[in-house]
Design a binder for these strands. Structure first.
Lengths: 340, 340
DNA sequence: GTGAAAGCGCTAACAG
DNA sequence: CTGTTAGCGCTTTCAC
């Protein structure tokens, strides 16, 4: 072959100017029906495909949204992306999806790449390692629209789509208390992730409201590995004053907890009750089924796009960063309720 | 702000030509150290970012690989992509990830988009719906490098990375037979997916070799929904001559099968034994743990990139399409073996 | 209706 | 060492 067919090739063949071809292809007015037909037919015959890079370059917009998530392997992220994509397509945009694998370095290079003219705006959920936010403020200074979802940076003024983590943790713990738990542990995620901190607040709030003491030794930080949760549970359960309820920051970790409890022959929910977050499909197939906080993944995706497009397509000078806080929903299953 | 800083802005400010700036930025020889320093300093100060579209346009290569998969929500695909990304980054390439949601239409538009100059080549796993392959041959005619993995098209000459589906199904069924199964059903996936057909061959091969009859009523095609597997299992188990072993085309469907069996109070593995494909993490946390065929996801990813880059970066005229067939590994767990 | 020309941001000869 | 020129493929005035 050699090279792709261009507008120029068609123009030459038809003895017209490239401008004319361009007009025909884009269905603009002011073109003779015959010329147009000629162009379209040849374009079809030659399987002409417009070069998006060229178009984007001259229009200085790409009709593409950049997505940065920690890990596509997480149900949460792949599902949100599915809904982001749906909304984007509907609005005539494509997606450029990247992942950081929870690495700050990778986040840096991804941001940089995307900000080199590849996308009109970026939707991001921060890596676990990220505690320096200069790369993000730099983006904003350069005028590149940015929307956070889930894992955000509290200090940055930007559009954000969050769930009410504090409230959902509060409700989860309250649920445990109502089911008889007196001593509730919290397996939190990594320490510097905003989501964990917000949930801790809700956890504490519920305990205090019920007149239960907050025991710092019952709050354990960790990574996102199942095995860490497993060993932490072992430790937790070997103390003399062991918990009768556990709030776990994610379903993944919850499975680590269940594994440990099974090893220790501690029954769930009879001896210990558990609630976790995300409501992944696995919650309903594992035994015992897991009570989990369900997040509105469709809305998170849809609204992220909405807020980003609002910035991108703003006709009117400024756009105020808008923060959406969505409600969650506790899905009660076996792991937290008495067997009947 | 208005617009991004360009090479021209820097040139103007420093009273040099854009060529000089370009040289300095790209660390080319033939440039005075002082000029270079001047340029680099200003570029840093102004947070200059090269426009990738412009570079790609002039070089007519993007250093980006397009990825098309049916669904990022599948463990198989998100994990393969993780390894594709690793290999790509190592080779200096970025990824443009898209998904079809198993829709032929979406595959069409994704292919088209990517082929409009956005990527140097494409790695694809076909959608379930795809039975017309013109969009792919058209790609090839236009000289755009293409590599298939997992779900491929047998009739197209192209580089492919596959696993030995026939052999792995053969081994899986043989394993069931060795564990006492006499009447083995096969929950295959969608009918027109190459993977399913290959596995069916292996299934039949193992039965015939053991002198067991092949009963067509034991081979059930379906979609990829857990619930379909569940209802199919109900049907299967209500026949008078029900199976004592089931080969399931994916772990997802296997969970549907387990659900149905639990509802029917049929014990696994005592009454029925089961083997499935993919070896997702869930296999080891569900009860009973699932015997499953593990695929070399890292190699699939790595080799896909390798074969694609071989085509992209070929110096020497032609490149022969290369088909890699990788070995799988049966991971034996509770669902297929006698309890002790 | 159509064409010529300029330009998006950058690279790549080719002079000097 | 540095500048000039042309051009990647396309859109967009502005003439005619």
């Amino acid at each position: 072959m050699g090279h792709q067919v261009t507008i120029k090739d068609i123009a030459k063949q038809l003895n017209v100017s490239v401008a004319t071809v361009s007009r025909a292809l884009r269905d603009l007015p002011d073109i003779h029906p015959d010329t147009k037909k000629l162009v379209l037919d040849l374009a079809k015959e030659w399987d002409y495909q417009p070069n998006l890079l060229a178009t984007s370059l001259v229009k200085s917009k790409t009709k593409t949204l950049g997505i940065i998530v920690p890990d596509l392997g997480y149900y949460f992220f792949s599902t949100v992306i599915k809904h982001i994509e749906e909304a984007a397509i509907k609005a005539g945009y494509s997606l450029l999806i990247t992942q950081t694998q929870e690495s700050y370095e990778r986040e840096l290079t991804n941001i940089q790449n995307l900000s080199r003219g590849q996308v009109d705006g970026i939707i991001i959920s921060l890596s676990r390692e990220t505690s320096n936010f200069e790369h993000l403020t730099r983006l904003q200074r350069r005028g590149i629209p940015l929307v956070f979802f889930d894992r955000n940076c509290e200090d940055i003024q930007a559009s954000k789509v969050m769930v009410d983590n504090e409230q959902s943790a509060y409700e989860a713990v309250k649920h445990l208390i109502e089911n008889g738990c007196k001593r509730i542990a919290f397996l939190a995620g990594p320490k510097n992730v905003s989501v964990s901190n917000q949930r801790r607040l809700g956890y504490i709030h519920a305990l205090e409201e019920a007149g239960l003491s907050v025991d710092p030794s019952l709050i354990l930080h960790s990574d996102y590995y199942q095995d860490t949760a497993r060993s932490q549970t072992h430790l937790l359960m070997q103390s003399d004053n062991r918990p009768d309820g556990i709030l776990v920051v994610s379903d993944r970790l919850a499975i680590g907890v269940l594994t440990a409890l099974k090893e220790l022959k501690i029954r769930v929910p009879e001896d210990v009750k558990m609630v976790s977050f995300n409501n992944e499909p696995i919650c309903q197939v594992i035994s015992p089924t897991i009570t989990s906080v369900s997040q509105p993944l469709d809305e998170i995706g849809r609204i992220s796009v909405e807020l980003l497009l609002a910035q991108i397509e703003q006709k009117t000078g400024e756009s105020i960063p808008k923060v959406e806080v969505l409600k969650t929903n506790l899905v009660v299953r076996e792991s937290s309720t008495k067997r009947n």
